[in-house]
Nucleic acid binder design. Structure first.
Lengths: 340, 340
DNA sequence: GTGAAAGCGCTAACAC
DNA sequence: GTGTTAGCGCTTTCAC
């Protein structure tokens, strides 16, 4: 264990310089792995550093170099989405992001914000001086605010939905296409009256809904029934049950905005004795692990989360380097299991 | 939107001071909300700051005050646990931690580390100068290293298992007690030959196993069969199937180390045509959302994740304030549903 | 109540 | 190849 209490405790680069009999500048160069340092000197410095468990203070270094080596990751919690909800999808994405950023030598500073109570959430984060760039996970209902910022701040990439002509650089699945795939599958499986389960004020969900609608209209089927829900499992569970009471007999296909909602719907349908896919066909979105484990396993539209994380980090790094980058739209993939 | 391109762009406290016609010191005091600043002066300074969207640089402030306002959260990825696995439980805990820390005015710096490739993971983080304290999520197989650090570094709290006489401050569920509850339930439901599903080299899991064993021995039943698995769903799925081929007919009760494993086991059992709880009883651990959604819903041992997060933050803050704190052991709660 | 000045720990010219 | 020096942007004595 590092020698914390030798009388010559090493608190900074200057202490270390004294012990090594060189100047602070040399220590800085040696520890930063710069060229132009005598091999023996460097070795000696590294030895002393190791012996005392010394690491240069990143705050000081950051201040001086005007870069921190930290990327901010912020999750805006929308209107409904109080507290910890930020569902499994975002959490999984966060995990991948952590891995990618680590690989690139960056640290990750995480913030969850409630835009309603803190309209300044994005400026505040960016202006803190603590981060070199920012990744926003989910546009929530903050599209406009994000656009505002994008106008004057380069190193930002957002996970979310791509809209024609938008300013901010976004990475995300083609939600509209995914919606089409879902509706096509439901119809191919025999559904005639579709319903959309989820809150369409979220822009990603609205796009999924719109995609499904494209197909419904093209096929000349009756327009979809909207079944709005919150995202938190507790509330959504009840809401779904209510929806089924109201519309359960009118519909024969459900497109759920997420797998979580689909799983909940499956449970509610089973409780009502509705056969899936016999009476009602069901398609989810995301392809989270839970999709394989429902009974029957869920047909769903897959988002490639790992590719998304890689894209976010990749684009952000290029922006950090000064590039102007385009948005990245990933293709969704229909995964056919047994609910449709 | 903040006025980024006025000719008098405000990049630091000194610029702002010039505009306000005061000294940097006064601006600092005003923006930090210190007393002893004339109300009018303060107001003027705040107005200018707002107008220019200026925020003091936290790096500089941190450097000067020798505190950063950032808490490090580190997830050591164990031997088997490559990549993003760190299961839903940790991710959920992380979400609650983010909320708690935010409430207390701290930012959260997240790191996932692979101790095998980076034995110095904890020193490195602490020594970086970027964080005021650290929360370690999960001891993985790093108990000894954590003990080493705890010896010389105060502001650290760890989520994990409590062991008699340990140095580091830990918050966690009483795993051994949870294990007892699980075994008691399995036996009450008619099981005679229990199996433990999961990797007992993880210390938390070992404690759960030990607890179950306590009961098995006390009741004079044959000792438990160990069914080791990895944590990632893909690998665990196959491993479980294999285990069932080897031992499926010998056992009538399974205690799974986590709900995720339990859900996987349920699927595997269904595929083999084994009735649950008719032929084999099953109990999980954690009470994640998935536990309500399996078919049939899972009997499990609940960990109070929110309370855990609150405890971690609470203890850390007290340690930051210089207190010596005891560990916090939370009671598990058996939740009886339909698998046992 | 405010200004002046020193310095947190580090890096990057610029000398030599 | 190494030392010297001048800050990065902020806070905080200490004067007044």
């Amino acid at each position: 264990m590092p020698d914390r209490d030798t009388k010559g405790a090493v608190r900074n680069i200057t202490d270390l310089a004294r012990l090594a009999g060189v100047s602070p500048g040399t220590v800085s160069r040696a520890l930063a792995g710069k060229s132009l340092v005598n091999a023996k000197t460097r070795e000696k410095i590294e030895a002393i550093a190791r012996e005392h468990g010394f690491r240069p203070n990143q705050m000081a270094s950051g201040l001086r170099r005007q870069k921190t080596g930290v990327i901010g990751v912020v999750i805006p919690l929308g209107h409904d989405t109080r507290q910890q909800i930020s569902d499994s999808f975002f959490m999984t994405l966060l995990g991948f992001l952590a891995d990618e950023l680590t690989r690139e030598g960056y640290d990750l500073m995480l913030r969850r914000v409630v835009p309603e109570t803190d309209p300044d959430w994005l400026d505040r984060f960016i202006g803190s001086g603590m981060i070199d760039g920012v990744i926003v996970i989910g546009q929530s209902d903050q599209f406009d605010r994000i656009e505002d910022i994008a106008d004057g701040y380069g190193p930002m990439v957002v996970w979310g939905n791509h809209t024609e002509g938008q300013l901010h650089c976004v990475v995300g699945t083609d939600n509209r296409l995914g919606g089409r795939q879902a509706a096509e599958r439901l119809i191919a499986a025999g559904a005639k009256q579709l319903a959309f389960l989820g809150d369409t004020t979220a822009i990603e969900f609205a796009a999924r809904f719109a995609g499904a609608n494209d197909v419904v209209r093209r096929m000349g089927l009756p327009s979809m029934i909207e079944l709005p829900t919150h995202l938190s499992p507790e509330r959504a569970g009840e809401e779904i049950a209510d929806h089924l009471v109201a519309h359960g007999d009118d519909i024969d296909g459900i497109f759920a905005a997420t797998d979580t909602l689909a799983a909940l719907a499956l449970t509610a349908l089973r409780e009502r004795g509705v056969a899936v896919p016999g009476d009602i066909r069901l398609v989810g979105f995301d392809d989270l692990p839970i999709a394989r484990q429902t009974v029957p396993p869920l047909t769903t539209v897959r988002q490639d989360i790992a590719a998304g994380a890689r894209g976010l980090v990749d684009l952000l790094l290029r922006r950090l380097a000064g590039d102007k980058t385009e948005s990245l739209v990933l293709p969704p993939e229909l995964v056919i299991r047994e609910t449709a």
